[in-house]
Amino acid sequence: MTVQPQPAQGDANVVAAGRLWAGGAATAVVAALIAIVGILLARGVFDVPVLAPEGEGTWGDADTGRYALYCALAALIATGLMHLLLVSTPRPQQFFNWIMGLATVAAAVAPFATNGSTESKVATAVINLAVGIAITTLVNGAARVARREARTGR
């Protein structure tokens, strides 16, 4: 049995950590799947070589799996950031939204600083944008539930 410290009256910084991290784990799966689906669409449907040379086929090469894992890791890092913000800052979701918004813009712009075709850069930017939006919204939703459940004692 885990003993939870009782929050001071009106303490808004109580978090149902298990619920938050379960949501974060589910977000990691979604982020990885968005990356894979995005690459499949780009390479298989639009014939744009994303993350691998053209001759690698629809699935690409080992970079496809690595990219999906990095997207999942980004979701877990975002969950850790949200947890830290929830227990330490006023208006944690506002700070989270700003941080994630700027990180998502950076991820969407980053492909344009690399060598490669314009089509590949655009496809990678769109995938990065979709992953960033998904992580931001899903972790925000998990945080709302985790705060509400912690306050009601569920």
Rank of each mutant, 00 (worst) to 15 (best):
V122T: 13
L102M: 11
L51W: 15
A52F: 06
A108T: 08
G153L: 09
G65K: 02
V139G: 08
A68C: 09
A42T: 01
W98R: 12
A108F: 04
A106W: 12
A72Q: 07
I99K: 04
L41M: 13
T79K: 12
V131P: 01
L76N: 09
L86S: 13
A142V: 02
E54M: 09
R144D: 09
R151A: 15
V109Y: 05
E54T: 10
T89A: 15
E54Y: 09
G57S: 12
P111S: 13
L84W: 12
Y67V: 06
T137N: 03
L102C: 05
L69M: 10
A130D: 02
A123E: 04
N97C: 08
P53W: 02
A107E: 02
T137L: 09
W59N: 05
T137P: 01
V50P: 06
A103P: 00
N97G: 14
E119H: 06
R144S: 08
R151L: 10
K121E: 14
D47P: 01
F112P: 09
A75P: 08
N115L: 12
T136D: 01
R43E: 08
R43G: 07
N140Y: 11
V45I: 15
L41G: 12
K121L: 10
A52S: 15
G38M: 04
K121I: 07
R91G: 05
G60N: 07
A113I: 06
A75T: 08
H83P: 00
I34A: 04
L84D: 02
G153I: 07
A52V: 09
V105T: 11
S120G: 14
L73C: 04
D61C: 05
R148Y: 11
V122G: 07
P90E: 14
S88T: 15
R151N: 10
T137S: 02
C71Y: 02
G65Y: 03
I39K: 10
T89I: 11
R148M: 07
A52C: 09
A134I: 01
A75V: 06
A74Y: 12
R148D: 10
A68S: 11
G65D: 01
P49R: 07
N115R: 15
S117V: 02
G60K: 07
A74M: 13
L138W: 05
V122K: 11
A75H: 08
L41P: 00
G80H: 12
P49C: 05
H83N: 09
H83I: 04
L86T: 03
F95I: 11
V37T: 11
F95G: 04
G116V: 11
T118I: 07
N140K: 14
G101M: 04
T136G: 10
M82N: 01
L51R: 12
G80N: 13
